[in-house]
Design a protein around this nucleic acid. Structure first.
Length: 584
DNA sequence: GCCGTTTTCGGCCCGACTGTTTTCAGTCG
């Protein structure tokens, strides 16, 4: 996430909230700013790269007025409207708006009726009974607000997808013991496989008479620390061990498709879909798709039915972000997305020879018995990666012998030789060309000296005839390190020009490149490869995260090189060699 | 504030839960 984008999105979010506070007549202005914040948050590139010929590239939802504010921020690092607006709201307004259960109307009452402006003043007034004098505020509401205010600030950090998947799996496991549950599945951004997940949303199908019992069971689980809401059809709780809000929603089996569609989102996708429904004389809610005039149910049992009734192809959850997929579905052009079963091998793994935990033989045994792979590439580190046990040319030659031995024992060439060679500060590589030439696959990555011109370093690596792919191209570490500065547009152009593949690193803490850059890459005709960057046998399942990124990038199996057999990968390498030598 | 081959004005997605109310406002997703 780019710092500028984040900052700007925060300001627009805040402006939206302030307009909410100012009253109903500003409601839609408020929505527009909230909307802009979301768009900027989801922008694939630094917002400064989203400007062409001095203008913000036309984006649905951002018009003239907000565009001006973006430019004002980029030039002056502030937005005067925001400075002015802040004077019209309570001092701690923005902090207070984030407290569960506190909204603009409540804060307005506190501010105008009792002149309360800070968090401390409000807590005091809640405790000494002054709030109780306000109409509509009785004991229960006062206590709820107070406990929300006094609670230590919860983590608002989004969870990496892998962690969210593990948590949801374990919760689903706990709930599966409830016999009345007919179907249970994940929804929300988790089902869309976004790289990070906020809340965990679960959908359940059950008979109407069983709802109550299921909800009681759910909210009574030992793990539940806070109960936010408990109704007839839904409940919302806070799980202490996972430090996460978990929402469940119960519908009947015949509503399953409509509900799953609705709770999978995204919000933008659903709003677009609803507008489309209205144009066609329908309305959609979580119970089904109905005609407006007779309120007759047309679809709802499954998701396909909802989309088909609107004249659309069914859209895979990973594509539902309102970035053109609805238009594509209307034309019947939804791509057949890659699946995990299309993957023929892992392109990025480490063994004991550098910083991995397993010997080559152990890797071969594990992969043979757990994966249907045709090949797996060992890409151990090169010599300058001293802390990661990087290897020199001699050691790689020894490793080659070991690989041959293991393959011979297996009776097939499962293990491929390779390296993740360091791109040095000047863009040269950490191993000799003559060695690189003898290896089956060469990934080149940056691991240090991030303050150099990383774009030029990577471009230089792309121009080396023996570099097959660029590893974790942005260097980001989810939740702890922003990527090093790099001009990804240019790198993708050079990758396309030189026939170098770009890696989708599926490691749970990297997921690099991300879905948006991967989408950009295939638009530019760049070939992608997926690797797990595995360091132990448990890591091989990161392949599904890599595939998730590819699916969110609208990739078919033809976009991903390691859905091919090894002969095609050899052909890819030859094409690159030819290109490089043709241009020389 | 944004959008538009039905519109440059007049719309803007929709429903559940809570706490307060006797029919609803506020908040949330």
């Amino acid at each position: 996430m780019y710092r500028v984008n984040k900052k700007l999105a925060e300001i627009f979010e805040a402006i939206g909230s302030i307009y909410e506070f100012k009253g109903p007549k500003e409601r839609f202005r408020s929505i527009a700013y909230h909307n802009a914040a979301r768009i900027i948050n989801d922008l694939p590139e630094d917002i400064r790269e989203h400007i062409q010929d001095g203008k913000f590239i036309k984006t649905y939802g951002i018009g003239k007025s907000i565009e001006e504010k973006i430019f004002e921020f980029l030039q002056t690092n502030q937005i005067s409207l925001f400075n002015d607006l802040q004077k019209e709201v309570p001092k701690d307004f923005l902090t207070l708006m984030k407290v569960q259960g506190l909204g603009p109307e409540t804060l307005k009452r506190f501010y105008y009726d009792l002149n309360l402006s800070t968090k401390e003043q409000i807590i005091e007034a809640l405790q000494d009974g002054r709030i109780l004098q306000l109409k509509g505020f009785q004991k229960k509401k006062v206590n709820n607000i107070l406990s929300a205010l006094l609670k230590k600030t919860e983590t608002d950090e989004r969870l990496p997808l892998w962690d969210a998947q593990e948590i949801s799996t374990s919760i689903v496991h706990m709930l599966k013991t409830i016999p009345q549950i007919q179907i249970i599945d994940i929804a929300g951004s988790l089902r869309r496989q976004r790289e990070t997940v906020g809340d965990i949303d679960l959908l359940i199908a059950a008979k109407a008479r069983d709802r109550k019992a299921i909800i009681r069971h759910f909210v009574s689980l030992d793990e539940v620390e806070n109960l936010y809401a408990e109704g007839d059809t839904k409940a919302s709780v806070y799980f202490k061990s996972f430090k996460r809000q978990v929402d469940i929603r119960i519908v009947t089996e015949d509503q399953w498709g409509a509900a799953l569609q609705y709770f999978t989102g995204s919000k933008a996708h659903n709003i677009h879909l609803r507008k489309l429904a209205i144009e066609k004389g329908f309305k959609i809610n979580e119970y089904g798709l109905f005609t407006v005039d007779e309120n007759k149910k047309i679809a709802g049992e499954n998701e396909e039915g909802i989309y088909h009734a609107l004249g659309l192809e069914c859209i895979p959850p990973e594509m539902r972000e309102d970035t053109g997929e609805i238009e594509l579905a209307a034309e019947g052009l939804i791509p057949k997305l890659i699946t995990i079963d299309d993957i023929k091998g892992d392109m990025h793994t480490h063994s004991k020879w550098s910083d991995g935990h397993s010997s080559i033989e152990e890797i071969a045994d594990y992969i043979s018995s757990h994966q249907k792979y045709d090949y797996i590439v060992l890409t151990d580190h090169s010599k300058s990666e001293i802390i990661a046990g990087g290897m020199n040319e001699d050691q790689f030659m020894k490793q080659l012998k070991e690989i041959k031995k293991v393959n011979k024992k297996l009776g097939r060439d499962l293990i491929k030789s390779g390296t993740e060679v360091d791109i040095l500060p000047d863009g040269t590589l950490d191993l000799s060309d003559s060695l690189l030439q003898t290896l089956d696959w060469v990934v080149a990555s940056i691991h240090s000296h991030f303050n150099q011109d990383n774009t030029e370093r990577i471009i230089k690596a792309c121009r080396n005839p023996y570099v097959c792919a660029i590893g974790h191209p942005t260097g980001r570490v989810l939740g702890s390190r922003e990527g090093y500065p790099v001009d990804m547009e240019r790198i993708l152009d050079v990758a396309a020009e030189t026939g170098t593949a770009i890696e989708i690193n599926g490691h749970s803490h990297r997921m690099d490149i991300n879905d948006r850059w991967a989408k950009r890459a295939i638009e530019k005709g760049v070939t992608l490869v997926i690797g797990t960057d595995s360091h132990n046998t448990g890591n091989y399942s990161f392949m599904k995260l890599g595939v998730a990124i590819a699916r969110r990038a609208w990739c078919t199996k033809d976009h991903i090189l390691n859905t091919s057999d090894w002969a095609k990968i050899e052909a890819f390498k030859r094409r690159k060699l030819e290109r490089i030598y043709m241009t020389h």
